[in-house]
Computed example of a mutant assay.
Amino acid sequence: MSLLVPVILGSVRSDRQGVKAARFITRHLKGRSCEAPLVDPLELGLPLLDRMYKEYHKGEAPEVLERLAELFRRADAFVVVSGEYNHSIPPALSNTLDHFLEEYFWRPSAIVCYSGGRFGGVRAAMQLRAMLCELGTPSIPSLLPIPEIGTALTADGDAQASWLDKAARRFVDELAWYADALRRQRAEGTPY
Rank of each mutant, 00 (worst) to 15 (best):
S139C: 14
V122A: 02
R74I: 02
S88V: 06
I140K: 01
E66M: 13
S109P: 09
E84I: 07
L164I: 05
M131N: 09
F171I: 06
A130F: 06
A69R: 04
I140C: 01
N95K: 10
M131E: 03
F119S: 13
F105R: 15
F119L: 14
L97C: 09
A130T: 13
P147H: 06
F72R: 14
C113A: 12
E134F: 11
Q160V: 07
A75V: 10
T151F: 03
R67Q: 10
A161N: 12
A92K: 05
S82E: 03
D50M: 09
P91Q: 08
T96H: 08
A159P: 01
L71W: 06
G83N: 07
L164A: 13
A124S: 15
H87L: 12
D98H: 09
E134V: 07
W163G: 09
S115G: 12
S142K: 00
A75Y: 06
L97N: 11
L153G: 06
F105Q: 12
A124T: 06
Q127A: 04
S94Q: 13
V112K: 02
L144P: 00
V80K: 02
S94H: 12
R107W: 00
W163F: 14
F72M: 11
S139P: 13
E70T: 15
R123T: 03
T137M: 15
G136E: 02
G136V: 08
F119D: 03
P108R: 07
R51T: 07
R51S: 08
L97A: 10
I89P: 06
P138V: 08
T151D: 07
R73C: 00
G116K: 07
F100P: 10
S142C: 00
S88M: 09
T96E: 05
S94R: 14
S115I: 03
G157V: 05
K166T: 14
